[in-house]
């Protein structure tokens, strides 16, 4: 068997591969059968709807151009908003994947290295059982922050300016610019831009802790403008906050 063609082909080639596939892929798949896969429509929630309608209020012309107008009538309007929102989620995810965002931003919080304190609640299996996580957007590298609890932390216009020119709102950011998500100005996000903003605001919108804010304050060492004395004070304040956090 060890040196024969059939041994190599059937045992090593097919057999060992099948063993690994069954134990490492089929087993988790069977385990998560009890969490049915949600569609984008099922993912639309009140927090997300608020952000999506905020986009329509902030950028009325762009929004109408991209998604049209509600038909009128309370029930019809409600259904229309939900449908457009799901549509934007799907399109936003395609932009997120196509631009390779997930190569620099992860979407899971680990139960170690104080990540719970920085990013928010630890990732749970059922959060990922939906069509927007096919394939899953865990990510493997964090050049920028984790995004799985990003929804609601910053406003739509902050994100719009950030996509258009990151350094305007985040000094020293190595993130690339994405002007092609806009019609020439951060006030005019196009369909891709609006979809992307919806997708970002969706991340973590299902959490009870939404929107999640960090428990720490910026340290003095990145603020050269702060005097040494007040820097010490800031440091003391920080440890006090951290202390409170631990007690809680």
């Amino acid at each position: 068997m060890f040196e024969s063609k059939s041994g190599v082909l059937y045992v090593a080639g097919l057999g060992f591969f099948a063993l690994a596939f069954v134990s490492n892929a089929v087993v988790p798949w069977l385990m998560y059968q009890r969490y049915p896969e949600k569609t984008a429509e099922q993912l639309v929630n009140a927090n997300l709807r608020y952000q999506f309608e905020d986009l329509a209020r902030r950028y009325p012309e762009s929004f109408e151009k991209a998604f049209g107008k509600p038909p009128g009538g309370a029930a019809e309007d409600n259904a229309w908003w939900n449908e457009r929102c799901a549509e934007a989620l799907r399109a936003g995810r395609r932009v997120y994947v196509g631009e390779g965002c997930w190569h620099c931003h992860s979407q899971f919080v680990r139960p170690v290295s104080n990540e719970e304190q920085r990013w928010g609640p630890v990732a749970r299996s059922e959060e990922y059982q939906n069509e927007l996580q096919r394939p899953v957007m865990f990510g493997t590298r964090r050049v920028g922050p984790d995004l799985s609890r990003e929804g609601g932390r910053r406003s739509n216009d902050w994100h719009a300016v950030h996509f258009f020119h990151p350094e305007s709102v985040s000094a020293g950011s190595p993130m690339p610019e994405y002007p092609w998500l806009f019609d020439g100005h951060p006030d005019r996000p196009n369909r891709h831009g609006l979809a992307m903003l919806t997708y970002i605001q969706w991340l973590g919108s299902w959490q009870e802790s939404y929107p999640y804010y960090e428990a720490y304050v910026p340290a003095a060492l990145i603020r050269p403008d702060v005097e040494p004395e007040s820097a010490e004070a800031a440091g003391a304040e920080q440890s006090a906050v951290a202390g409170e956090e631990q007690v809680r």
Partner: peptide, 10 residues
């Protein structure tokens, strides 16, 4: 497959 199991396959 989706979610965590898609992660395992990935």
């Amino acid at each position: 497959v989706t979610g965590s199991s898609a992660g395992a396959v990935g």
